[in-house]
Structures are given as structure tokens and as C-alpha cells.
Design a protein around this nucleic acid. Structure first.
Lengths: 218, 218
DNA sequence: GTCAAGTTTCTTGTATACAAGAATTTCAAT
DNA sequence: ATTGAAATTCTTGTATACAAGAAACTTGAC
């Protein structure tokens, strides 16, 4: 299963957009980028098209493609949908989850906690991602799993930002524990509510963070 | 806002796949299709890539692209997710829906009913689509609205098939009425449950239909 | 006749060339 | 100096040409 050049370019561009190398309304010049990646315009255009379809970039016919960072409103909307999708995962998983998966959720939380204490941000994020990935998978609905991963990936950079809020890490861990507890009890509604709240609060924290930044800037 | 050739080709190919002109595992030959649409391979490849990203087609590197109709399991999964997403729409819409929109839902249902009585299938489908589109929109979350429309579009041909089940049309109309009633009462949970059931039953009907077809074939 | 290695042909992936529409600049008129 | 139209330049969209990998076919050994 070998990948082609345009795939790698798409990934690279995605990273560059998500980490803010390209500013928001900025136009992405095909020729420049082609030179930068040492490739012709053909695979580059394929990569740009992929980004356009995944929403990171807007393609205006005969004008070019422009970086399109979601604004505060759209972000809140995305977090809202993410919260609901994860709640559905939890509801389904509460019935279907295996003992092994529960064990793994516990283990992941352990490692997550250890990372919090050791102040290892990267390790924390890795385990956090794993926690959610397991939940998606345990929904038993692979279409849902894919949709969740898609949206999760898109929200990734903002999730990271939101976690800088004071005391959020410890609170987030507590929420994880509560979610696992509900799953262990097989309580679908409680698990769903816990997960919905867990994700929704991320959106809110992020929103607060944005507001404070705006005040600072003003 | 002019579109480009590859957009039209993508639409055309999409129709051809959805209406079954191309069989399931069939390989789509770039050269043949290019001739067929009287265009070079470049825009055609763009169109194919779009279809691949939207899931209608699978692209295997250096091998070609193949039609990929979802199997029964995946379809059920998709209907399950659709049901949940629409339930979220209903829950949000129950609080935010405007009087005008409620009025329009009623009107749409009227026209839908008329179409049922007149046995006008096309009109029925048009109004049915409109009903759901209004709900998506009235969620007040445009990201959610887009996601719903995306999935709705993808399920469109299967929805149509499912409605052939005996008595389903009339039952479906009754469900629509119940949904509007819940929205008028501002009862979020009832609206969500009604819409979830309304969509979920479509998946089940479809599943039944598939099973009976398989028995017939055997 | 079957199987395998080598060769040919075909298809996809990439590069380049060309066409057409958009942006920018130039230049004239007021 | 400003405005507006013509022309030039630049960028995107499409066509064609080339490269590389996969499938199909040929040929030879057993």
C-alpha cells in the first residue's frame, strides 16, 4: 500500500496550515508551493483539492485557494457536533464495550495521569487521543468511528489550545474517570451525558480563552 | 460563481454510480471516461478524486479507482449515524425554531400529503427532502447542517428504495406530523426521539427489504 | 499441459505545454 | 491628480507528453 506524492504534500500542507504557518485569508500560490516541495503543479493541485474537500481551505474557481481557519462561531458549532457524536459513541459503547477495552481505558487513564504529574504535555496528548480513539472504536459502528476521527483530527489544534486553561488538565482527567465508571456500570445515558459534557466544556473553555485574548489585544 | 468542468464531471459520475450504471466492484477507466465526457484525463482525475474523498469510490494507488457501494452493514451504520445527527438537529431546533419555519414545515407536510394521495412519487420526495432540510437549518448550527446534508445526500438512493415498503409512505407522513407537533410544544426530547425513530426505521425497513431480496434471489 | 521468467503492453502518476479568465499596469482624457 | 479603458502579465484550468509500476502475454523448460 504505497502512497503517492500528492498524499505526502497534502499532509505537509495540512500541518503547515494547522500550526499557523499560513495566515488565515492567505492565498496559496500553486507555483511557489510546487517549487517549495520540488514537484510539478499537478500533484500539488491534487493535494490542494483534498484540503478544500476537508474544509481547511476554500477554493474559489479561477481565483485560487485560500486558507480558511474556522472562526469562533464555527468552532463552537464544531465542538457542539463533536460532543454529540462522542455522546452517541458512549451510548453505543456502554452496551457493547469489551472487558479488554475497559482495561485499556483504565491503563490509558493511568498513563495520562502520570503524564499530568510529570508535566509531560506530549505524552498527555498522546494518551488523551488514545482514550477517545478507543471510545470511537468501541461504539461498534465503524462509520461513526471514522466520522469521529475526522472531526477529532480537525479540532486537534484547538483542543490543545483549550487545555492551557488553569486546572483544566486535572478536571479533564476526573471526567475521563467518570466516563469509564459509567461504561463499567453499563449506564448508557450517564456515559453519554458525561462524554457530551466533557467535550462541550472544551468548546466553552476555548471560547473563554478566545474572549480573553481579544480583550488582551484590545 | 462559475464552476469548472471537473465539477460537472464529478456530478455526472456520481449520478451514474448512484443509479447503478456502474456495478459495484467495477473499475473506472480514466481514458474511457475521458473520451465519454470529451475531456482530457486531468479534469477527469480531479472528479474521481472528489468521489474517492466522498466515499463513493475507492482509489487504490497505481491500480485504479473502483466503485464502492456500501454493504448492508455499512448502510445500517450510516442510517444509525444519520438518525442520531437528525435527533440532535431536532433537540436544538426545538428551542430555536422560528414561527415561520414551523409554518413552512406544516406547509411542506401538506404538500407531501397531497403528493401521497396523488401518487406523485417525485413531488413526495422533493417535499420530503425539504422537510428535513428545514430541520437541519433550524438547528441553528450551520456546521451540523452541512454534515447532515452531506450524509443525507449519500443516503438518498437508499432512502428512496426503502419507501417502497408497503404502507411506509403514510406512516412516514404521520411521523412527520408528530415531529412538528413536538417542535411546536418546544419539547426537545420528544422531538429528538421522534426524529431518531423516524430515520432509524428507514434503515430497518431498508434492511428488511434487502433480506427479502436475498431470499428471492436464492 | 503447466508453470515460471522475461518481455510487452497498458494504466496510472507526474511533468510540461497551452488556453482562458482575472488582476494589474499603462496611458490617455478630463 | 483621478478615472477609465486597453493592454499586458499572471494564475488557474485543461491538454498533452513522458515516466514508472502493474497486468497480460510470450516463450521456454519440465
Amino acid at each position: 500500500m504505497e502512497r503517492k506524492r500528492s498524499d505526502h504534500i497534502a499532509d505537509a500542507l495540512e500541518s503547515l496550515i494547522l500550526d499557523g504557518t499560513f495566515a488565515n485569508g492567505e492565498r496559496l500560490d500553486e507555483q511557489q508551493l510546487a517549487q517549495r516541495f520540488d514537484v510539478s503543479r499537478t500533484p500539488l493541485r491534487e493535494a490542494l483539492q483534498r484540503l478544500a474537500l476537508s474544509g481547511l481551505v476554500e477554493q474559489i474557481p479561477r481565483r485560487g485557494v485560500f486558507v480558511r481557519q474556522p472562526g469562533p462561531v464555527e468552532l463552537m458549532e464544531m465542538f457542539e457536533v463533536m460532543a454529540e457524536l462522542e455522546a452517541v459513541c458512549a451510548r453505543l459503547a456502554a452496551r457493547r464495550i469489551s472487558d479488554e477495552a475497559l482495561e485499556e481505558l483504565h491503563a490509558t487513564n493511568e498513563r495520562c495521569n502520570a503524564a499530568v504529574k510529570a508535566r509531560e504535555a506530549d505524552a498527555y496528548f498522546r494518551e488523551n487521543e488514545r482514550f477517545h480513539a478507543i471510545l470511537y472504536q468501541q461504539s461498534g459502528n465503524s462509520f461513526l468511528e471514522n466520522e469521529c476521527q475526522r472531526l477529532h483530527k480537525r479540532l486537534h489544534p484547538f483542543r490543545r489550545m483549550q487545555l492551557r486553561a488553569r486546572g483544566r488538565l486535572r478536571q479533564s482527567m476526573a471526567e475521563h474517570e467518570a466516563i469509564v465508571a459509567a461504561l463499567e456500570d453499563g449506564d448508557a445515558d450517564r456515559a453519554a451525558d458525561a462524554l457530551r459534557a466533557h467535550v462541550a466544556v472544551q468548546g466553552e473553555k476555548f471560547h473563554n480563552l478566545l474572549s480573553s485574548l481579544k480583550i488582551d489585544a484590545a
